[in-house]
């Protein structure tokens, strides 16, 4: 084991420079609940660790003038869970983030880390995809934005170029009558990894679904945006036929593998089951406008 350089960057600039200087051997540190575990097991051996938790922009939740939210990439799940307005507007995103790990893990784990670790089973990502979140990225060439669904490019891989890091995630403003929800299937009740995860966000007007997005996790090399499922829901009253069609679209979108966490047949089936259940919760939230989603 060689020595590791540790940089606690005070600004985005400093973080970008430190990452460039590390020449491919650098790793950003947010909560460390993935990174440190991977270092212990030998899966990661970074030369430089760049801690971003001293950078304000990365550590804040900001309400935007248009009614949207900007969540700093390293804000912990515990802090996100306590933000009343965010939880009221995006209960599905918040419940997804809060599902990560246990109380102890929540004190550290961030949505940015969850996204950048780029596991296909990352819990917050399907909810963020459903929410239409954008990823704000800072790098040597300045700032850029990509939709969440375009961020991961494969298991453990993403679109960050050398020197780039994620600053924040932005959530769009919420029209009235909107609700979102995230459900995952795990064989146990906690401390487990999603076999399938489904995020649904929708808007209802007079009982008719006017907008919908569906994010699907753990069934393909990356989290998927399932446009066919959304199409099946939009324009419907979320009746059984529409739900069946959306569920079928989710199952069809699956490109899973048989592995220790689930069979192809099971994952494909559960994708549909969870779509229906998550849609029902999102619809209830949309109509009742109850913040919900909290324990």
């Amino acid at each position: 084991m060689s020595d590791i350089r540790y940089v606690a960057a005070e600004s985005l600039d400093e973080a970008v420079k430190a990452m460039l200087a590390a020449g491919g051997q650098g790793k950003i540190l947010a909560g460390g609940t993935d990174l440190l575990v991977q270092m212990r097991s030998g899966a990661q051996n970074p030369g430089t660790i760049v801690d971003v938790k001293k950078i304000d922009e990365v550590m804040q939740i900001v309400e935007l003038p248009d009614g949207g939210f900007r969540i700093g990439a390293a804000v912990s799940g515990a802090v996100i869970g306590e933000h009343r307005k965010l939880a009221a507007a995006w209960p599905g995103v918040v419940e997804a983030v809060n599902l990560i790990g246990s109380k102890q893990v929540q004190g550290r784990a961030s949505a940015g880390g969850n996204l950048c670790n780029s596991s296909p089973a990352a819990d917050s990502v399907p909810a963020l995809v459903a929410a239409g979140a954008k990823v704000v990225i800072q790098g040597p060439n300045g700032r850029r934005e990509v939709p969440v669904e375009a961020f991961p490019t494969g298991p453990g891989r993403n679109c960050l170029a050398p020197g780039e890091l994620v600053v924040s995630l932005t959530l769009p403003p919420r029209p009235p009558g909107s609700g979102d929800a995230y459900l995952r299937l795990i064989p146990r009740t906690e401390m487990d990894i999603a076999v399938v995860g489904v995020g649904v966000s929708l808007t209802l007007k007079d009982g008719v679904c006017t907008a919908a997005r569906v994010g699907l996790g753990a069934v393909a090399p990356t989290v998927l945006l399932v446009e066919d499922a959304a199409k099946a829901l939009i324009g419907s009253k979320l009746d059984d036929a529409a739900l069946e069609k959306a569920a079928a679209a989710c199952s069809a979108a699956c490109k899973p593998i048989n592995d220790k966490r689930g069979t192809i047949a099971y994952r494909t089936k559960i994708a549909g089951v969870l779509l229906k259940r998550a849609t029902a919760i999102a619809a209830r939230r949309a109509t009742s406008n109850v913040p919900g989603g909290m324990h």
Binding site: R188, T189, E190, M191, D192, I193, D259, K260
Partner: peptide, 15 residues
């Protein structure tokens, strides 16, 4: 393939 407590699933308290 599952030499760890993540994928070798003993019950957790909440189960």
């Amino acid at each position: 393939d599952n030499p760890g407590f993540l994928d070798y699933r003993i019950p957790v308290a909440s189960d």
